[in-house]
Amino acid sequence: MTEVAVIAKPDLQGKRLSFALAEDCVAHYPEFRDFFVRTFDLDRKGLAEPGFVRAPSGITYALVFIGRSGEPFPSGVEIHAIVDALEPLDGTILDRDLWLILRWMIGGVGAPWTVEDFDRTGRLYRVPTPPPA
């Protein structure tokens, strides 16, 4: 498994949502908000349920969308790893998964945003996860 995949709601019995990353302003560049609306059918589903993706590590993530009065929905988003309720999460795997989820997001947002620019930015700031040039 090498790609991030959108999946149906998983069984959450015995699991917990482990907070990983938050964005207060997903529409700072509106095309990012549009991507999430399109990908998770948010105009229809609204706050009914999170979006779910499976990362190449096999870990499933919940994307919890946040509404804010007076702003288009969603205004924000939180990413949570879905893990066994009492088990810790490996930080290295989490970091790698987040990188790949963001890379998937950039690819989905599309031009002029590119995964190549995302990778270059990661390399410039020496984030350990991007592939070498």
Partner: peptide
Amino acid sequence: RIFPWRMMHAPLVGPYLLGNH
């Protein structure tokens, strides 16, 4: 420019790159 300025603080990318890293 998108690289590196706008990419660096883009939604979710900002919290990840400038926050976590």
